[in-house]
Amino acid sequence: MTQFLVENKAVVVPGERLVEGMDVVAGPNTYRDGDAIYSERLGLAAIDGRTIKLIPLSGRYVPKTHDVIIGKVFNITMNGWQIETNSAYSAVLNLKEGGSDYIPRGDDLTKYYRVGDYLVCGVVNVTSQKLVDVTMKGQNLFKLRGGRIFSVSCNKVPRIIGKQGSMVSLLKEATGCKVIVGQNGLVWVSGDPAMELIVQKAISKIERESHLSGLTEKMSAYLEKETGKKVFQGETDGV
């Protein structure tokens, strides 16, 4: 007889018994030991029919292919740039991936990106040894100029972006700032300095209250109060 020992969306800790019985599949971040399924991390249990998985609530960023991240140039080598990724591993931006223009070998690389520059870059490849390759070729990948950068928990990034980007577009519309949220938990905001500050406060509020329902409505009310302007709320559904 299969029995779920936790409710859907309950907080579970490592080693907690989640399911008893053989006809449930152990999904990501869980493991089976004999008859029972146990959790392998701290997170929220997600029951989906006959599978159970775990959505992590904490942990550092681990680079994944196709992620768009905000990285910082910390070194320049013969073949390209080395990028800090806000994780345990640094990334390499090769000359060939340096941008849409051709960069000749032996060129002065500081002409393109200097040490200390922040870049919006895409992760192209991650090896088993966590060697990370990033690219600057592609739409919306560029060097950041001005604005401010701060970090948030990478587990909260999906909430800050919202469904189909609803939360980020709300922030952009309300404050007129440009906002980019990297999958690695770094956020770049650029615009009017007072508005930048409001965005930063709003994002830390989202981070704190990411568990509450109706967050988009709550945030639009908050932004209206802070900016003193009516916020146009288009197709932002109740996230």
Binding site: V13, P14, Y38, L42, S58, R60
Partner: peptide, 11 residues
């Protein structure tokens, strides 16, 4: 360690 989100089979 659990709070840091590491993979652990038990406490």
């Amino acid at each position: 360690l659990a709070d840091a989100g590491l993979r652990m089979k038990d406490l």
